[in-house]
Structure formats: structure tokens, C-alpha cells
Write a protein that binds this DNA or RNA. Structure first.
Lengths: 248, 248
DNA sequence: GGATTGTCGGTTGTTGGACAACCCGACATG
DNA sequence: CATGTCGGGTTGTCCAACAACCGACAATCC
């Protein structure tokens, strides 16, 4: 681990200067968001933008390419670059989570999504999907026995739920959220969670599996809720989620 | 409004040839996904890639820039381009929806997300947020009276719910999904939905508002479910969603 | 010897110029 | 009127060069 020269704390580590195409893409996106060139309207030519920004055409091209890949603009060779008819972003981004506040919010979103997925899985699972769920459950049990790493089996369990919901978007979004959180947690407390991998989750997982096996959506929702809330607590995060029947 | 020449329906609109940086970015992403350069490992230099692909360095740079913005690779000047320590995508993408199948799946995801948001809003809304919700409700009523366009007020209503959940990620994702669906629907049946804007939704919206006002998460969930299911039916989409108490 | 500093090769960041591919409108031609 | 041709303008691609930066090694100094 290279120690950043923090010996003399009066010199703050200077953050990487924003790269040129980054800045230009950002400013163009701001303009478009403000509706400056109306949707469908044409942007200035690359040469004009380059001149106006005082940079080379390649830089402008890189910026436009990024906007293009985000679906904000479309270019047609020989004609120009146009603001997309519907300049709504094609992607939902989650930047690396820093504050615990953010982590808690994302976890909350994930909680609800996984609850929904489990309910769908309980309704629509095929026998094969149930088999995969049970296989992941057994793999986790083995991991606890042999003191080995249980994380792969755990993620496989969650993926199996996502798969059993039989909705590709649901599945992709669950995988995305899980992945995004996994990395943030791994960065925050490096591997400490993996060490004290707790067999407490065993019962929670089993309850989810049973509810899905028994085709009981409500029970599946509640089982996932309990599982993720205690998982969060094991990570030191307090999630304010009431059982759904509390209001009755 | 340029009418896309659909006079002769036998000629399908031919899609734009995949651009060079697109293809290279895709192939690089595939390689990385297969773990070819291990996470943290270095990619070949831009010059080498340019030579190997038989293209210019600019094209390779554009491709790498895209991967960089997706969080798959990181570049450091003077050092090279590296596969990100965790090459998980930073963004969840939804391409323009073509098949009705896709639209139904996305709508299902949105249904569950909005149900969760409504439940959260019922628990956590502030008085100001409730005011905004009621204002949107009244705006919709006015729109029905004056036969004017009710869509802006409707989206504002949904945004108000998203805001009242008091979770920025939840809010952003809801807005993203709504926006994404709106465009797809607009493309599919151009503005026909806007014309027969139905005052039937009035009661459904009011029910949601009341549940959130009364701090009843369960009722809020159910009200949103009813609203989105009938909204889908009005669009000709059959959504298989049971009331959550059905299993009891 | 050990620490600091200068130098060098390699890589990305940026620039400028050039040409090809393409679109559109205007014009000529029959 | 239909068609072909041309020219201007724009994006797509290529090339060559320099600047900024990094790592490693040699040179220097104590």
C-alpha cells in the first residue's frame, strides 16, 4: 500500500483535474437538459464547438460520443448532431457510494425490489428454478460447515431468486443493485464482513426458500424483509423498515 | 413533424451501420467481461490496440472513453488503461422498448417500485410534500375540466410521490422508469393515449393521496397497484398482478 | 551506504490538419 | 417533369506530432 505523503498534513492531496472531454460533455448535457437546443434541434457543428470551447475537435468529438452513448444526442454523418427526440437518459447510474447515508438509501431500494422479486418468484417459479434455489441453499450450508467463503453461494442464492421472478428487467436490476452494493461494502470495510460470515443467515435463507416453494408471495416478501434487515444490521446499518402488517 | 415514410410498409427502416468505436467498445467489453485482462490488469496500449484492430488510435480512444464512462476501465496518464478493480457496470440501462413483452416487464418492475415508494411516502411524508401531492391532484382535476392535457400534472403527481419517499435513489429510479416508459409509449401509439385521457384515473389518484395522507402504507401500496394495473389496461396491456391479500 | 535528484523511455492527453463518406439543395439536361 | 450532376457543408476516420505524466534507473551528494 503506497502511503500518500500525508506526513505533512498541510498539503492536501489534489484531486485529479477533470478531463477536458468530461467537462465539455457535462456542460453540453447541462445545456441540453435546460432545453437550449430544443429536442430534435441541431447542435453547433463540431468545428464551431471546438472553436467556442477553445479545444480541439477530437475533444469535442469524444464529448459528443459520450452523450451519444447516453442517448442524449444522435449524430448523422454529413448532416450534424441533433438532440435526441426524447433526451431522457437511457441509464440509471449509481456512483460509488461514499456516505453511509447513501448506502442505507440504496439498501432500502434494494430491499423493496428484492421483496417484490421474491413475491413474483413465489407466484411464477418453475420446478427447475426452485431446484437451483435449493442448491444454493445447500451450498451455503456446506460453506458454513467447511468454514469456507460463503459469499459466492449467497450471491448465487439471490441471483436464483431474481431468475425465478421470470422478468428480465427485474433480474438485471437486482443483479445491478447487489453488485453495486457489494463493491461499496467491500471498499468500506475490506473483507471484514466475509470473516465473520454468520450462520445466522441460514434460517432466514431457508424461510425465503420455503415461502417460494410454497407459493406464498406474502410470506416470501416478509422473509426477504427480515433477511435483508438483519443483514444490514450485521453490517452496522440500521434500516427503518416495519413489517408490512404493522399498520393493521 | 416529419412523417417517417411509412407509406409503403414493405420497406423496413434500415438501421444505421454500427459505428467503428461502437464495435470496438463492444468487443473490448466482451473481453473484459470474460476476465481476459484480469480486474486490475492492464490493457494493451492504445497504439497496440489500434494496430491489432486495424483502426486509428482515435477510434480506440473513443471506445476506451466509453468503457471508462461506464466504469469498466480506468486510465492513468502516462501509465496505461486498466480494467477497473471491480468491473461491474455503474449504470442500469434500458434500451428503447420494442416488443410489448418488454413493455409489460418494465411496467411490472415499475409497479413494484412505485408501490414501495408509496408505502415509504405514507410513512415519511412531510406536510409540505403532502401539499404538493394535493396540488398535483387538483391540477389534474382542472385538466379534466378544461379538456386540456393532463399528462404534465400526472407526471408531477408521480414525482411528488417519489419525492415524498425521502430517498434520493428511490426517487431517481422512479423518475427514470417513468420517463423511459413514457417515451416508449409515445413512440408506440403516438399520442393516442393523450387524446382519450380518462377521468377514471381521478378516483385512483385520490385513493393514493388519501392513503399517504392517512399514513397507511398498506393502503398506499394497494392504491398504487390498482392505479397502475388499470392504467396498463387502458393502454391495452394486461398485467398479471394479484392483490397482495389474495393468498390469505 | 543511503537518500535525493536528474534523466530516459513509454503511455495517455491533446492538438492540428487532411481526406473519405455522406447529406442536402441547386442547377443543368433530357 | 424526372433525372443526373455538382458543390458546399458536416460527420467519420486517419495520421503525425507534441505536452503531461509515470515508472525505473543512473547520477549525485551527504
Amino acid at each position: 500500500m503506497p502511503t500518500p505523503l500525508n506526513d505533512s498534513p498541510c498539503f492536501a492531496v489534489l484531486s485529479r483535474r477533470e478531463t477536458l472531454p468530461d467537462e465539455i460533455a457535462r456542460r453540453l448535457a447541462d445545456e441540453i437538459g435546460a432545453g437550449r437546443p430544443a429536442p430534435g434541434g441541431r447542435l453547433p457543428t463540431e468545428a464551431a464547438l471546438a472553436g467556442s470551447f477553445g479545444v480541439s475537435r477530437n475533444v469535442v468529438r469524444e464529448a459528443i460520443a459520450r452523450l451519444k452513448s447516453e442517448g442524449l444526442v444522435e449524430t448523422r454523418q454529413g448532416l450534424g448532431a441533433f438532440v435526441a427526440a426524447d433526451p431522457s437518459p437511457r441509464a440509471f447510474r449509481i456512483e460509488p457510494l461514499g456516505a453511509e447515508e447513501d448506502l442505507r438509501h440504496v439498501l432500502e431500494l434494494r430491499l423493496h425490489v428484492e421483496m417484490g422479486a421474491a413475491a413474483l418468484a413465489a407466484e411464477r417459479r418453475t420446478p427447475e428454478q426452485l431446484d437451483r434455489l435449493r442448491a444454493a441453499l445447500q451450498a451455503m450450508a456446506r460453506a458454513v460447515e467447511t468454514q469456507s467463503d460463503g459469499v459466492p453461494a449467497d450471491t448465487d442464492f439471490h441471483h436464483a431468486i431474481a431468475e425465478a421472478a421470470n422478468n428480465p428487467y427485474y433480474r438485471d436490476f437486482m443483479v445491478f443493485l447487489a453488485e453495486r452494493m457489494r463493491t461499496s461494502i467491500a471498499v468500506a470495510r475490506s473483507n471484514s464482513a466475509r470473516l465473520r460470515w454468520s450462520p445466522l443467515a441460514e434460517d432466514e435463507h431457508a424461510a425465503i426458500c420455503e415461502a417460494i416453494a410454497g407459493r406464498d408471495p406474502t410470506a416470501a416478501r416478509e422473509a426477504v424483509r427480515r433477511h435483508l434487515v438483519s443483514a444490514a444490521r450485521r453490517l452496522g446499518l440500521a434500516l427503518s423498515s416495519q413489517p408490512e402488517d404493522a399498520a393493521r
